[in-house]
């Protein structure tokens, strides 16, 4: 569906993107993940033929996007960060306008608009002026204009931006519903967003691709660091004798017990938390069972144990950090 080769974009002398190369298959839902300023929007705007790249090649559906952007635009639906709405129009007249612009045949227009309203669940408010709708509904109208002409490729830039938690869940459902009919590209800096919606991820940082693959493939990458957070309590009996200085001895005991576990690469400073001590430690593999066993065998009370961050969060931060280090070097 999409082949991108050595794509880059400069604003003046400043590099915003690239060079990046990637391919996206028909029917895939791909997430562009990255911090703010990573180059996600630039990449998507180039793919939507809204921005000309400084160098490189883009091929969408077998058509050279630089040579014939007009033809590529017929096959694309684009929802930018801020939906391109005309506030004085009603939802239905706006969608009819968008359908006309995208050359939907007159005979099909009513059906296509009806289907877009159905998919985005806008039927009840379709006749109301857009400026009277809530932010969530406006975002849905924006999504409806991106799909009204049934494009092969739908590009959504931060589709849940500014939505409340309920609206985010609803928007995710809508996006999920698009997967059967379109190739979908989504950009986001929210990990849960892409994790729950996408088949494959492209992690961008400082204009470059830092990682690509499914969530599992990215997590399985060599050198993956896991950050575990535990809370333990140290009973007086654990040190064998009454503490002269309770805090120092408890800290030493915890650090010593955790530091001995095979595979633990780093143990953080134990911090007093209520009736226990909170410690973060890093490892290169899943050591939750070994940690809990070691803590209990040492006579400490294990109050809590979990990953400090989700698997994807760990992977993402590692990729971003690595990317930043490479850029500095």
């Amino acid at each position: 569906m999409i082949q991108v080769s050595k794509l880059s974009k400069y604003y003046g002398g400043k590099r915003a993107l690239g060079p990046v190369s990637f391919e996206i298959e028909d029917g895939e839902t791909v997430g562009f993940l990255g911090l703010n300023g990573a180059g996600k929007t630039t990449a998507l705007r180039i793919l939507a033929c809204d921005l000309r790249p400084s160098a490189g090649a883009v091929n969408v559906g077998g058509i050279d996007a630089l040579g014939d952007p007009h033809e590529v635009r017929k096959r694309i639906g684009f929802l930018p960060e801020s939906p391109p709405l005309y506030p004085e129009m009603t939802g239905v007249s706006y969608l009819e306008f968008a359908a006309d612009l995208r050359r939907v045949a007159k005979a099909d227009k009513r059906t296509f608009v009806g289907e877009a309203l159905e998919v985005t669940d806008l039927r009840d408010v379709a006749g109301e002026p857009i400026n009277t709708l809530s932010h969530g509904f406006r975002q849905r109208v924006g999504l409806a204009q991106a799909i009204v002409h049934k494009p092969a490729l739908v590009i959504l830039d931060e589709p849940t931006r500014g939505l409340d938690p309920k609206q985010i869940v609803e928007m995710r459902k809508l996006i999920h519903g698009l997967k059967d009919r379109h190739t979908v590209l989504i950009s986001s800096h929210i990990l849960a967003e892409v994790s729950q919606t996408c088949d494959r991820l492209l992690v961008l940082g400082q204009g470059r691709i830092l990682g690509a693959g499914t969530e599992a493939e990215l997590a399985a990458h060599e050198g993956n660091v896991k950050l575990v957070s535990i809370t333990v309590r140290v009973p007086p009996a654990a040190s064998g004798e009454p503490y002269r200085d309770g805090e120092v001895d408890a800290r030493k005991t915890i650090s010593a017990v955790l530091g001995r576990i095979d595979g633990v690469t780093q143990v953080g400073e134990p911090l007093s938390r209520g009736d226990g001590w909170a410690v973060s430690l890093t490892s290169t593999k899943d050591l939750r069972a070994e940690i809990s066993r070691a803590v209990v065998q040492a006579g400490l009370d294990l109050l809590k144990l979990d990953y400090a961050r989700s698997e994807l969060e760990n992977t993402f931060l590692r990729l971003v950090d690595t990317g930043a280090e490479r850029a500095e070097a």
Binding site: C49, P84, P87, A98, L101
Partner: peptide, 14 residues
């Protein structure tokens, strides 16, 4: 200014 130009610029319109 309002961002609605994106609708026109990403549509197959000369």
């Amino acid at each position: 200014q309002s961002g609605s130009l994106v609708l026109l610029s990403t549509s197959p319109v000369r």
